[in-house]
Design a binder for these strands. Structure first.
Lengths: 141, 141
DNA sequence: GTCAGAACTTGACTCATTCCAGTTACCCTG
DNA sequence: CAGGGTAACTGGAATGAGTCAAGTTCTGAC
């Protein structure tokens, strides 16, 4: 059912259903934040063949229709996540790169409207919190 | 004077004063957001020789002592800025990549403390606003 | 002026990501 | 349930930001 669900989701988004796409989408559901490389590994573990370019193609397609989101924390490779639609942000460990989701802090999104927008049409406010995760701070102390 | 100022700033930060460093720092003052590549070009235009590696070394050194800040908007190369110390954020054009500074919206930084911090020791909240700049929105309409 | 070490250079290299041309296979139509 | 148009995938090569390592040069303190 989870699998059938995945296929339906792809079809509803107007994408052709392929083994690669379904498997990539499921890999993204299993783990909150995955790199393209890790996605390739997980898909192949399922016995499905996929080329590196295939991974990027699929991830781009999924992102284009809004089924996944791409985030690119400074200093590391891009990661993809299947949690979309809600306005959540990220907390990144400076030491190990671990990424954790954090819900939008303030109830109102007013905090996320720049004061002087210089004539820009703003459509998204991305917030990244930087710090050190419990595991890493234990090691360094 | 501006030049003397630059040299003093380097010395105060505990860095040796070299032609390369002074020139890089001045290049960053001229323009608000510059890529490593653009820095190299500007420095060389001044008649100063610098290797690609040298540019990265200098930028890393300046960033380490807090004279500059490195920002890495998703999808483009890292850019450096000399405006540090104040809590300002960035507005990036999805079409042309132009970056504009925006002042912190809310007076209190409380808005920038994640609700559940998962045990992380957070030291910075980075906010990036995404949109389309006036020039690009004119072209596409 | 001398000298230790910081700063810089050169050149090779890594790694994520993209481009291109050709092949495969999904799914709509009849 | 066959055929065909085209979206999706493959393989291989290329790009480009950034890094590593070893050797040379120059700054600044004594």
């Amino acid at each position: 059912m989870a699998e059938e669900n995945t296929r339906a989701q792809l079809r509803d988004a107007g994408l052709r259903v392929t083994a690669q796409r379904a498997s990539v989408l499921e890999a993204l559901r299993d783990q909150p934040h995955v790199t393209a490389d890790a996605v390739a590994r997980r898909v192949r573990e399922q016995g499905i063949t996929i080329s590196t370019q295939g991974v990027y193609d699929v991830l781009d397609a999924l992102t284009a229709v809004g089924l996944t989101r791409r985030i690119e924390p400074a200093g590391s490779a891009a990661v993809y996540e299947a949690r979309v639609g809600d306005n959540h942000h990220h907390l990144v460990c400076r030491a190990c790169g671990t990424i954790v989701d954090v819900d939008c802090v303030v109830g109102s999104p007013s905090c996320l409207t720049p004061a002087g927008s210089h004539g820009f049409v703003v459509d998204e406010a991305e917030v990244v919190f930087w710090g050190v995760c419990p595991g890493c701070s234990r090691l360094s102390s």
